[in-house]
Simulated scan of single mutants.
Amino acid sequence: MIFLANRANLDTRTLLTRIHNRLQTQVPDEDSPIEQVRYQTSRGNKVGVHATVTPEAFLGTSYPVTEAELQVSFDFPPSYAYDFYAIQWVEPKRDLMIGWHQDETHADLGECHFQIDYDGETVQRETATFLDSHPLNVFDQRIDDLVSILEAVTWVESVPHVPTQAVR
C-alpha cells in the first residue's frame, strides 16, 4: 500500500489510479451519476481520467443535456513549487467546458484560474483560489465546487457566464 498523505511519495500515475478507482467504484450503483470511467493516455502513459456523467444525477435536478464528461489531470513539475491540475466539466453536445486550471498559464491571474470555453472560444477566465493541499483533497474540493458552479451558470445573449463571486 502506498501512503498518499506525503506528496513527496506521490506520482501522477499513482494519483490518477486513485482517482480512477474512486470514480469507478460508483459505476455499479444504479443511482450513481458516473456511467463510465477511463484513462486518457499519451504514448501509453496515463495523463488523465475521464468519466462519463449523467448531469441530472450529478446535480440532483433537471439539466439541459443528458450526458457530460468529467476530465481530470494532474502533474507534478519539478521546476514548480506547486502541483498542476485541470478539473473540467465538458459537454460535447453544447461545445461547453467549465473548469479550473492550476498551471503556468495566465500568470496575470495567479497560479490557478477558472475558465469557461464555449463554441470554440474562451468566454470567461477568472482568478481562482490556489489550493495547496493533497491532490486528492483538491479533487474532492473542486468536485464539490463544480456543483455550485453549474448551478450558477447563466446564459447572457446565448453565452455562458458564472458570476465572479461564485468562482472559488
Rank of each mutant, 00 (worst) to 15 (best):
R43S: 11
R43I: 00
G44L: 06
N45S: 15
N45C: 02
K46S: 10
K46H: 14
V47H: 00
G48Y: 01
G48R: 05
V49H: 01
H50M: 01
H50T: 07
A51H: 04
A51D: 04
T52G: 03
T54F: 03
P55A: 10
P55N: 09
E56P: 00
E56Q: 15
A57F: 12
A57E: 11
A57Y: 11
F58W: 06
F58V: 10
L59T: 01
G60Y: 08
G60K: 11
Y63P: 01
Y63H: 15
Y63V: 00
P64R: 11
V65K: 09
A68F: 09
A68G: 15
E69L: 02
E69G: 00
E69K: 14
L70S: 10
Q71S: 13
Q71H: 12
S73Y: 00
S73H: 01
S73V: 05
F74C: 07
F74P: 03
F76D: 11
P77C: 08
S79E: 14
A81S: 15
A81F: 00
A81K: 13
Y82H: 14
Y82M: 07
D83F: 00
D83K: 01
F84H: 15
A86C: 02
Q88A: 13
V90Y: 12
R94Y: 08
L96T: 12
L96W: 07
M97F: 00
I98G: 10
W100D: 05
W100V: 08
H101I: 06
H101W: 06
D103K: 08
E104Q: 12
T105H: 13
H106E: 09
A107D: 11
A107H: 05
D108I: 10
D108V: 09
C112D: 03
H113N: 10
H113R: 05
F114V: 04
Q115K: 11
I116P: 04
D117R: 14
Y118A: 11
D119Q: 15
D119V: 02
G120P: 01
E121W: 12
E121H: 12
T122G: 04
V123I: 07
V123W: 02
R125C: 03
E126F: 03
E126A: 06
A128W: 05
L131F: 12
L131Y: 13
L131Q: 03
D132E: 14
S133E: 15
S133L: 07
S133Y: 03
P135G: 07
P135D: 07
N137C: 05
F139S: 01
F139Q: 03
Q141H: 10
Q141D: 08
R142K: 15
R142C: 09
I143T: 08
I143A: 10
D144L: 13
L146Q: 04
L146T: 07
L146G: 00
L146C: 06
V147H: 13
I149N: 04
I149P: 02
L150Y: 08
E151T: 03
A152W: 09
A152H: 08
V153K: 09
T154F: 01
W155Y: 15
W155V: 13
W155A: 07
E157I: 02
S158C: 04
V159Y: 04
V159F: 04
V159D: 00
V159K: 14
V159A: 09
H161T: 11
H161F: 12
H161G: 00
H161V: 07
H161M: 09
V162E: 06
V162W: 11
T164F: 02
T164N: 12
Q165A: 14
